[in-house]
């Protein structure tokens, strides 16, 4: 498992999700803290491509050996891509939580990102 880290270039949602924002497209994933709390992740069920997801709502599920957890969308948008390599090898989320993105989304309103936390604010929360 990777060591604890919270990259400064990401934005964070209090439900332990991150967003990497590039213009009006973003990738989402879960934080180091989230994967550590879940334990060995063995299953990822993502949304459908083309589906619209709303900030603050669940868009998929991660399951560890012990528990199921909803994944919360930090921002709203239309799903462009689901990371098939994580569907196939969910343990990638434990190994590299910031490399193992879960969905790529075309943002509905990029200004929503102003409501997210930076790495310091997120770390103060956990």
């Amino acid at each position: 498992m990777a060591d604890a880290s919270y990259p400064a270039e990401l934005r964070y949602h209090e439900a332990h999700d991150w967003a990497r924002i590039e213009g009006d497209v973003a990738t989402f994933g879960v934080t180091w803290h989230a994967q550590d709390a879940l334990g060995d992740i063995v299953y990822y069920a993502g949304p459908e491509v083309g589906q619209t997801i709303k900030a603050g709502d669940g868009y998929g599920e991660l399951e560890s050996v012990k528990a199921v957890s909803d994944i919360i969308a930090p921002l709203g948008g239309e799903v462009l891509e689901v990371n098939q390599s994580v569907v196939d090898s969910p343990e990638a989320v434990n190994d590299d939580p910031y490399g193992a993105w879960l969905v790529k989304v075309k943002l509905t309103d990029p200004a929503e990102a102003d409501g997210l936390l930076d790495a310091d604010a997120y770390q103060a929360l956990i």
Binding site: M1, G39, D40, S64, V65, K66
Partner: peptide, 20 residues
Amino acid sequence: AKLVPFAGWRMPLQYEGIIA
């Protein structure tokens, strides 16, 4: 260990990880 409440006890859920 990750310690959790179980049946009134504080017990180890895992050390390294469940699968390992």
